[in-house]
Every structure is written in C-alpha cells, then in structure tokens.
C-alpha cells in the first residue's frame, strides 16, 4: 500500500503484515468492553471509599452490571474456541513457549521501554515475553474468575461457607493481579510512544513490515536468522 505524505507529491510504500484475525480483534474489544465494567463494578465492593455506590438500589445495579459483563467476559474464550479453535491452540502454544531470550527480554525491558534503548531488546517472536506472560495470567485469571465467580453467583447458601469465603478472597486476589496488569497493558498499548502500532494492529489486524522487524524479529525473519542477527549485532557493538 502506498501512503501519500501530507502536503507533498511524494509517497512511501508500506507493507502491512497480518497479525490478528477479524474474530480475534472483535473478541479482543468485547473482552475490553466487558473487563472494564467488571473491574469498575468490582472495585465498588473492593474500596471502602466507594461505599455510597454499593448501597441499596445503586449496589443492586452495580451487582447486576457485574453479572451481565461477566457473561460477555466468560463468553469470549468460548466463542473463540468455537469459531477459530486452531488459532486458539496455536496462540496458546505460543504463549507457553519460552526461551533464553525471554530472560534477555526481562533484562532489557526497563532500558528499552523507559530509557528508549532499542539495542537492549533481544529479538522476539509474534508475542514478546511481556505479552505472553500477560496472556498466561489472563487465561488463568479467566478460569479462576469463573471458578470462583459462578459458585458465588449460583451456589451461595448451598456451598459450604468456608468454600465461599475462599472464593471471595481468591476472586479479590485475581482482581488485584489482573487489574494492575490491565493498567500496564493499557499504558503499553495506548500510551507508550514506541508501541503505537499495537493499537493499529488491534483495529486493522496488521502491523507494518518495519514494526514487525523491530519488535518481533523472530516472527519476521524466523527464529534462527533473528538470533544470528542479534548475536552479530551484539558482537559489533562490543558486548
């Protein structure tokens, strides 16, 4: 695709590489649109200073919104598994694949994301270490939210109280982890200057060739070639 530069006659060519399917993008936004109300309504019961919102009719509404949003949140992985099971398995496999380069990512994350040192970032596959860790926590989180939330919803008074109490506290702990993670995810995907294409990819499903090269070299060049390039680069800069 060629893009005409504003106010000039010149144009540049951008090659776009598909990263997400339409179903994935749609489900991502359903996930977002359900997670935010879930988190906010959950937070009302969590933070004592929001107590007025938890009281009486307001509280009943808050709890109802939480339930409706939960249906959508829980529905996302189910719909994904039905519509694109192969893509789901492929992604799950990728989430669970770690290598030595993930340690290098952890080491390089601060200099890269905060100090802007591009050379510190080792090559990454289609999902970088942080994305994969986020995805794993989210998959486990969804399971745990479901396993604790559904009994609290339908089995209150039926299940033993110690189990209910345990479910409440696990649900809360999972909320702390996932909500903090969501804030980091939002920052990196929407706010961070270097990651502007991540939002593009979740909207249009593609990333530019140059972005893929810089951020996901193992995906773009293949693992072997990307590693060779990285080692060669490290030798050249004298590491």
């Amino acid at each position: 695709m060629s893009v005409r530069l504003k106010g000039t006659d010149s144009a540049i060519m951008i090659r776009w590489i598909p990263k997400y399917t339409t179903v994935e993008r749609f489900l991502h936004w359903v996930h977002t649109a359900s997670f935010i109300p879930l988190a906010l309504t959950g937070f009302v019961l969590f933070a004592p200073w929001l107590e007025p919102l938890a009281q009486g009719a307001a509280g009943v509404t808050i709890r109802l919104i939480h339930r409706i949003a939960a249906v959508f949140f829980g529905g996302v992985p189910i719909v994904y598994a039905i519509l694109q099971p192969r893509r789901m398995v492929l992604n799950l496999k990728e989430f669970l694949t770690f290598s030595r380069y993930d340690l290098l990512w952890l080491k390089g994350a601060f200099p890269y994301y905060v100090l802007g040192r591009h050379e510190e970032m080792p090559p990454q596959p289609r999902f970088n270490t942080g994305e994969r860790l986020t995805a794993i926590v989210l998959v486990l989180g969804t399971l745990i939210f479901g396993l604790t939330g559904l009994p609290m919803w339908f089995l209150k008074g039926v299940m033993p109280v110690w189990l209910f109490q345990l479910a409440v506290i696990i649900h809360d702990l999972m909320f702390i982890i996932t909500f903090a993670m969501f804030m980091v995810h939002f920052y990196l995907a929407v706010v961070h200057p270097m990651m502007w294409q991540s939002l593009v990819s979740m909207r249009y499903g593609v990333v530019s060739e140059s972005y893929a090269r810089a951020h996901h070299a193992m995906w773009y060049y293949g693992e072997k070639r990307a590693k060779e390039m990285w080692e060669q680069h490290r030798r050249e800069v004298g590491h």
């Binding site: 994301y113 905060v114 802007g116 804030m183 980091v184 920052y187 200057p193 270097m194 090269r213 810089a214």
Partner: peptide, 22 residues
Amino acid sequence: TILGLVAAFFAARRNVHMEEVE
C-alpha cells in the same frame, strides 16, 4: 502501578526519540 506508569511515561517521553521508532 499508576504512579509507576506515570513516572515511566515521563521518562519514556524524554528518552525515546521518535525518529528511531518504527
């Protein structure tokens, strides 16, 4: 988390050179 991200944002804004960003 919020404080950390705000601090990280201002640090990144100072340190990241947009002409190097793909």
